[in-house]
Write a protein that binds this DNA or RNA. Structure first.
Lengths: 232, 232
DNA sequence: CCGGATCCGATGTGATACTG
DNA sequence: CAGTATCACATCGGATCCGG
């Protein structure tokens, strides 16, 4: 970007200088969502090269948007946390996402599905309040994926963050969800409901009855799932 | 930018693909502010090369954000008007500008002043309602600029758009404003008031008393002038 | 594993000039 | 007025590698 400024005194231009460089707002979305570690960020922004990620983190630190601090106890590991200025970017990210959900055609991006990214987003947004007050294990089986990426487990423990596994954790499974990747992504984006997918036999949920019927409730959707799409 | 997508199904990423390319949001700010013609846009985004401007306009048209239509009567001239999707970007631009005003240090960008851009912005935001119901001519004299860019005239006609001239239009001047470029830019950005600048003798306004005293009123400021700055 | 750095070819951008 | 053309240069993506 000619690493250079727009040379305008307008606040929009001044902000855009740091915000509107490639990958930056996607990275910020990940930070606003709560990721703090380098490799955690990589998982949320998988197609961004580590070199560019590193550069952007430095740029954002220099801009006062985040702070990099060593993690006590773990040498050579760092945490990237938003400053107040960074947290104040949430409305900006929300406005962009809101517009994107309303106006950007989804078809093209539904050709670029990514299970890992989907599961990563889902596990962060699960709403555990309507779930039983005990450990629950939910297994997702993606019918259209090769075996290495077919099975995913969400481990829900009361009072603890939800855990995501791509290898069998060995616990008894309380609910099996069998679905294809596109359908699950559409549900996550709010383009389709769990019930509709079950009626169409695109999604099958078997196991614990209460988990099964409340699925639309505990399955936290994309923060923008509620926004109505207008784009043709 | 590798003219390529982020390949994510997240609405933030989908929107950022078209919005967060270099110059795009600055251009959108200009469109949201009401400019419609190619050379009008150039004046609002003076450091953007015409080649890139042309490309961006095509991209935005392809994204459904604006429409290009021939101007009837004038061959080979076109108008670029925001579609509903484009007008719906106003909250996004506002959120970015709001954040910029709050958090971006202004000092660096106050080294990149631009009279023409400032006058262009000002003439568009003049609030003519508190002005006399007759033609008024206001001359700005920038004490620190070379003669070619020193003098500017704003022509206010009731019921008509404000006119901006960089050559003497020949009318009697109702109000003379003598000021340096930095001070006037600071006032425009809301970093300083007209009264404070007059007390500091950085700005002198002489002529019609009512125009003089109401200056802070009719001088429309930047849309973000009201946002309190936090940045150190 | 974690947190990067390095290299190189492809792509995007800026400056300047020019045209119907 | 409304753009193109051209060329040098900056940036980015992808792959690889590295030190703890």
């Amino acid at each position: 970007m000619t690493e250079g400024s727009y040379k305008q005194f307008c606040p929009v231009a001044m902000a855009a200088e740091t915000l509107c460089t490639r990958w930056t707002v996607v990275l910020l979305r990940e930070l606003v969502a709560g990721s703090t570690r380098f490799n955690e960020l990589r998982r949320g922004v998988p197609r961004m090269s580590p070199a560019l990620l590193s550069k952007r983190l430095k740029d954002l630190e220099a801009a006062g948007i985040l702070e990099r601090t060593p993690v006590s106890g773990e040498p050579d590991t760092y945490e990237y946390k938003l400053t107040e200025a960074g947290r104040d970017l949430r409305p900006v990210i929300e406005a962009i996402g809101h517009w994107g959900q309303r106006w950007v055609e989804t078809e093209p991006s539904l050709d670029n599905l990514d299970v890992e990214l989907l599961m990563w987003d889902m596990h962060r947004n699960l709403d555990t309040t309507p779930m039983p007050q005990k450990r629950s294990t939910i297994q997702f089986i993606y019918t259209d994926l090769p075996s290495a990426r077919k099975n995913w487990w969400l481990l829900v423990m009361p009072e603890k963050p939800v855990d995501l596994c791509s290898v069998d954790p060995g616990f008894d499974v309380d609910l099996f969800v069998t679905v294809d990747l596109r359908t699950m992504t559409e549900i996550w984006m709010g383009l389709r409901t769990v019930d509709a997918a079950r009626r169409d036999e695109r999604l099958i949920a078997t196991g614990d009855r209460s988990l099964e019927t409340a699925m639309q409730m505990w399955l936290g959707l994309s923060p923008f799932a509620g926004v109505k799409k207008v784009a043709a």
